[in-house]
């Protein structure tokens, strides 16, 4: 698979390390209500869809940025690649 890195262009997926579902970007607040249940969900439970999946890839053999890749798990087609830090900044600015 080739991942279209927003800064570096097409890179081979073997340069990356895979971290799974992009829900990991949204760590629950430990002070919130039911934080125990939320952390069990955060740590262990996954939707694991057959189809479009947002997931984290780390460019370890490259610029060491975290990417959010939108990919189809049935066809391996990559639909969208974004920098995780830009997504988080946008979210935090809201």
């Amino acid at each position: 698979m080739l991942i279209d890195h927003p800064l570096l262009g097409l890179r081979d997926s073997s340069e990356f390390i895979y971290m799974g579902d992009a829900k990991l970007l949204n760590r629950p607040n430990w002070k919130s209500k039911n934080s125990k249940t939320k952390f069990i969900d955060y740590g262990y439970l996954r939707k694991n869809p057959g189809g479009v999946h947002k997931e984290l890839w780390y460019h370890e053999q490259g610029d060491r940025s975290w990417l959010v890749v939108t990919r189809n798990t049935v066809t391996h087609e990559i639909l969208k690649v974004e920098l995780a830090r830009y997504l988080k900044r946008k979210e935090n600015a809201k």
């Binding site: 579902d21 969900d41 694991n48 057959g50």
Partner: peptide, 18 residues
């Protein structure tokens, strides 16, 4: 192999990735 797909039909998320 398809556990998440089948259990997802009744909204159960599993501690599993395929």
């Amino acid at each position: 192999g398809s556990s998440s797909q089948v259990m997802g039909k009744i909204g159960i998320n599993l501690p599993i990735e395929s």
